[in-house]
Structures are given as structure tokens and as C-alpha cells.
Nucleic acid binder design. Structure first.
Lengths: 94, 94, 94, 94
DNA sequence: GTGGTCTAGACCACA
DNA sequence: GTGGTCTAGACCACA
């Protein structure tokens, strides 16, 4: 169903949280680079085999966490590294 | 971003409505006078920092409201005062 | 290109008008019945091989002409016969 | 004025013919490759320092001569080689 | 050099 | 998963 073999949410997990963490990992590993666009929300929904609403919830979560920035009518982009680290600190060091 | 310092649409506002109201105010104050041409739609898009489509939507609105008249291939002009007042009355006094 | 073999707009025609008339004919023949939903605008765009904007323009036209009613977030439906006939009369018999 | 140093139409030449021939030469030399888009007509007008109308006249000429194909709302593209040669023959060998 | 039409495709509010 | 809004930018008809 999903195009991402690593993406196997446990039945107990929230689907949008699982998607968000999977995308976050793709950013962390550099597969998705700063200032590059994420796939569109429709495409993410399709790639992960989830509903459009869940894909949106996932990108909203990433936005709140500072990992991505959304430009209306243009797309959602991976945030630049400094912005991402500031946010990570605000939530406390790992 | 925009050349008009007063023009700061809130993210919740419709962009074309905000542009239309800003232009309407410029007509009201006499900055744009009867029978004078508005800036072209391309120029309005640039001045307000919006897409051509939104600028066109804004002038269409002003046309419906009787504030301007459009002549194809020529331009869009501020309507003469009587026409503007008729319309204003039809919608009821403020 | 398009899924509707009858749909062959001439290059001189307005695309959205051609799409609107083709859909109107499908309503007239009973292929699309009162209170039934039209295909979504995205689907219409795909079926007729036009952009989403043109498909939207076509349904807007049908709405103005009273042939369909649109419910936001739900879809666009074929208007009930009485409403359609009122409108047709208002424009005069053919 | 113009960005193309080679482009120096003689005062006796038709401007659009001179532009068309300059673009034809850019295709011939491979600077503009098959299936690649030409600059937009607005951009061509700017690059060659001519009016928008002259730029359009030039691309229309190239279209008649089979050197480019225009896709409405998309752009104008260098024709594939076979198509170009057929046309050249129809006009007689060089 | 204007307004008109059109493409392709993004996110948003809502149900 | 719909219609609504919006971006960016193409060619077209006309004056």
C-alpha cells in the first residue's frame, strides 16, 4: 500500500504522528534537504497510503515543530537548519 | 513586499477582496480620479505583491460594484461619479 | 485525450463554454439526473482534458444558468427540474 | 538595447523577419534544442528590444516555417528535427 | 501593451 | 475528499 517500506505504523499509533516522524527522519538523514519542497499533501497521502486529512495533520505537526515552512499556494519546504535547531532547543535538548 | 504601505491583508482575509477595498479607498480619497485609468492588471499584481489572477479578481469585483469600467484592450477606468453613486444607493446608504 | 468522444471543442471556442454545454447536454438527455452529483471538478477536469480552472469555470456557468447547485465541501448536483425550467423560461423559449 | 550582440537588423529590414532569422540561427546552431521551450514572447520582446507585437510576429513566422510548435497556454517549443527537415524540403532544398 | 483565456498544481476550510 | 483560493506565467484578440 505505502511506497515507503520503513513506514509500518503500529496499530496503536496515531497515523499522522507516524507519518510526521517518518518524514522527520527523511529530513534528518538528508534525503529531504533544506529549502527543498516536500511532496504535495495529496502526494504524501498517496505515498503513505493515508487519507488527505492525515497527510495534512502530519505536515501541520512538522510545521509546529519547525521542521518545515509552508508557503500558501506554493508548497511546503524543509526549514533551514538553524531554524530547526532553535526549535529543537526550545523543546529542550535531546 | 507591496508598494502600498497601508496594504497589509491579514492571512484570514481574501486577497482579492483586500486588494479591491484598497483600490476602492484610493478612488474614494481622489487619488484615482473619474475617467482616469487604473494601473494595468499586471501592474496592480506587482504593486500589491499578488498574482495576476488575484489582481484580475479584484478589478472584476470593482466592476461588479460599479466603481470602474473596463474597456477590452484599452484598460480599466474609474467610473464617473454618478454611476458610482447610483450603485452605492442601490446597495443602501452606509 | 478526453473520455467523452462527443467533446471536441474547436480551437476558436471557449473551453469552459464547450465543457459547460457538453455537461448541459448530459443533463438534458437524462444521463445526469436531478439531485445526482456531478463528477467532482477535479474529475471533470480529467475527463475533459482541461485544467481545473476551466472545469471550475464551466460549473460556475452551469450554476449561473440554474442547471446545477453547488454545496461547498460536498459537491455539485443537478438542479431539480422545476428550477431548471424556470430559468429556461426566464431566458425565453428556444 | 538588445541582449544578443549578433542581432543588428539593418534599417531596411523587417524587424520581425530579422528576429525570426536570429532565432532560426540559434536553433540551427543547437543553442536552442528540439523540444526545449523558447523564451516567452514577452521575454523575447525584451531580449531583442522589440515590441511585443513584433516578437509575436516572429514566432508566428517560425511556426509557419515549421521550426517551432506552439502549445496554447504552455509555450512555444523547438520542433523535432524530422518535422523541421520536411518543412525545409517542402520549400525546396537549400 | 491591454484585458481575456488557459494551464498546472499548490494549500485551506469544511463536512 | 469536496469546492474555494491562490500562485506563476503562458499565448491570444484586439486596438
Amino acid at each position: 500500500m505505502s511506497m515507503h517500506p520503513d513506514f509500518q505504523p503500529k496499530p496503536t499509533e496515531l497515523v499522522y504522528e507516524a507519518v510526521a516522524q517518518h518524514i522527520a527522519a527523511r529530513i534528518e538523514t538528508g534525503e529531504l534537504k533544506p529549502d527543498e519542497p516536500l511532496p504535495s499533501e495529496r502526494r504524501l497521502a498517496h505515498e503513505y497510503g493515508v487519507s488527505l486529512g492525515s497527510a495534512r495533520h502530519a505536515t501541520r505537526l512538522l510545521r509546529y515543530r519547525g521542521l518545515v515552512v509552508t508557503v500558501r499556494s506554493k508548497g511546503t519546504y524543509v526549514a533551514e537548519r538553524p531554524a530547526r535547531e532553535e526549535i529543537a532547543h526550545a523543546r529542550g535538548p535531546r
